[in-house]
Design a protein around this nucleic acid. Structure first.
Lengths: 115, 115
DNA sequence: GTGATACTTAGGTATATGCTTAACCATTCG
DNA sequence: CGAATGGTTAAGCATATACCTAAGTATCAC
């Protein structure tokens, strides 16, 4: 991947890491500071910061610094986009697969749907 | 990421690349050969093969070689897992956000939910 | 069997990612 | 003010990813 063209790229990339998913799961239960996010993770604070940046770049997470403390929250709208993309595709190929009747299992002719 | 622990990692990782999403979108419209998948992509065939391997490792795509032609299909069950993960989290924080009433906008106390 | 087709493997390079430690900055407490 | 707390920046390293070209293998069509 040379550059991340769109938000879908950034979001799926963000969700592809277990540490970041742990952070997301934590944030689903309410806002948290950077230290709180770092708590369950076995890595240094700077690493957590980097993951946080990835999450923020993807739009999944927002944060705001008040005094010494940076409080992070999640933005459900962005995740909905990912859900929507998946949902769209799934609907599409479920219809298709239904029509084909488990193509790989039974057949060798790619034109099966046309008959 | 040192190793991809679980399937969720592999799947989100697989979906994080635009070329691979293009391949997935194509496969949603029915089975395709490697060459057909490569068609719309501006890259060499070996690169397409690598992307295909990533997709297969994630479980999203299956393929079967018949004669000279490898025919690829998609497995909706795996994508459903991703959808489920997102759906679960979204539901969770939507309830939460609703209760908090846009935390960041109005408040500075992380214990807001306890009052 | 010769050549074309469809993929596959090998090898190599460039960039991205994930992590670390050390040092730094800003806010709060005494 | 000076120390503690919470976060941030900088620099560097190891591995992973994404891409390529060149050369190979296995059908299939003569």
């Amino acid at each position: 991947m040379l550059n991340h063209s769109n938000q879908l790229d950034l979001m799926f990339q963000a969700l592809a890491d277990p540490a970041r998913r742990t952070m997301v799961e934590r944030l689903c239960r309410g806002p948290a500071s950077v230290s709180e996010l770092a708590g369950p993770l076995t890595m240094s604070l700077p690493s957590v910061m980097q993951h946080l940046q990835v999450l923020e770049l993807s739009g999944l997470v927002q944060s705001k610094k008040i005094g010494r403390v940076r409080t992070c929250t999640i933005d459900r709208r962005v995740l909905s986009q990912a859900e929507q993309w998946i949902s769209d595709r799934r609907a599409l190929w479920e219809r298709r697969l239904d029509a084909l009747g488990e193509y790989l299992e039974n057949s060798q002719e790619p034109e099966g749907s046309k008959t």
